[in-house]
């Protein structure tokens, strides 16, 4: 065990894992975070806390992580490379560890151009793969500079993202391999709204034996409207939504119910797919639906580990 987090234990035990996601608010109202955590409590192993997602200033992911710990839920804090240099990042990692946070997910971060401070300077002192290396070094007792840390190294279970829907397609598997090489233990994929592309990606992943080196959690997002699906398809860089999904939603009488049904079917399908270790359910602004999806997908109650 690297960190002994709930998520790590579940994955190491070979159970099909479930993670959730909470977007901290654009205010200091920590109750919002705890409210969402309570809503999903017991349905996921850990909950991602986004780090100023889409470059919009929000309550810090580490502070939100502490709020989750207080609510007896396991946090998985995200760290993006956009806003902090290696000094601040390592300091935050130590701080997070001191608070009892064990899962950290490394990301490049969305460019600030589309956030609420488009005139800011970005950092990118290190990139997401280098951040993984840095985290791996820290849990081995070394700072990025090579200097040895005093005392016990922090215990970190290292996550990363993978996007099978970005280009160039052939490189997407190589990129995951680089992340595994850098020391990542698990990855969560971009939300999966094109199963055919995902399966092709998984084939390449298995061909390189990557699923044996890194736990892969497929991203699930229940769709609420046809408009949202089309927006993601047309305007969000690195996202794909297949035509059959859009057609199904268009034909549905109750679109939300169809969206949930679709998510459940995806999970059922993924449960049988070799190399998929779990799902990461991103129901931002629809957190209350997570328990229903987990239950109906036959994943509740969560196993004890």
């Amino acid at each position: 065990m690297k960190a002994g987090s709930n998520l790590e234990r579940m994955l190491e035990a070979g159970h099909f894992a479930v993670t959730g996601e909470i977007g901290p608010p654009k205010s200091w109202d920590g109750a919002v975070v705890q409210h969402h955590a309570k809503m999903m409590k017991g349905y996921c192993e850990s909950y991602n806390l986004t780090d100023n997602q889409t470059a919009i200033v929000r309550l810090s992911s580490i502070a939100a992580g502490k709020l989750l710990l207080d609510a007896e839920c396991e946090p998985n804090i995200q760290i993006v490379c956009r806003d902090r240099n290696r000094i601040a990042m390592q300091s935050d990692v130590l701080g997070a560890a001191a608070l009892g946070i064990k899962n950290i997910l490394a990301l490049s971060g969305d460019h600030q151009k589309f956030g609420n401070h488009p005139y800011s300077k970005n950092v990118y002192d290190v990139d997401s793969i280098q951040l993984i290396q840095m985290l791996d070094g820290m849990r081995k007792g070394y700072f990025q500079s090579g200097e040895q840390m005093k005392g016990e190294p922090p215990k970190i279970y290292i996550g990363c993202a993978a996007n099978p829907f970005a280009d160039p397609f052939e490189f997407r598997v190589t990129r995951l391999e680089k992340k595994a090489d850098a020391g990542a233990d698990f990855c969560q994929t971009q939300c999966l709204l094109d199963m055919e592309r995902f399966e092709r990606w998984m084939e390449l992943v298995r061909a390189r034996g990557l699923h044996k080196r890194i736990k892969i959690l497929a991203g699930i997002t229940p769709l609420k409207s046809v408009k949202a699906a089309k927006y993601m398809r047309d305007y969000v860089a690195g996202m794909m939504v297949s035509d059959d999904i859009i057609q199904r939603l268009e034909k549905a009488e109750d679109i939300k119910a169809e969206g949930v049904q679709l998510a459940i079917e995806q999970i059922e399908y993924l449960k049988k797919m070799e190399g998929v270790a779990g799902v990461h359910i991103m129901a931002i602004a629809w957190e209350e639906i997570v328990p229903e999806i987990v239950k109906r997908a036959g994943l509740y109650p969560r196993p004890e580990v």
């Binding site: 460019h111 280009d167 990129r175």
Partner: peptide
């Protein structure tokens, strides 16, 4: 690269274009 990363492309690369524009 809009993010000056050394191990790209990041997840925002699509159809050879950057997520920024």
């Amino acid at each position: 690269c809009s993010k000056s990363i050394f191990n790209g492309p990041c997840g925002g690369s699509q159809h050879g274009k950057c997520e920024v524009s």
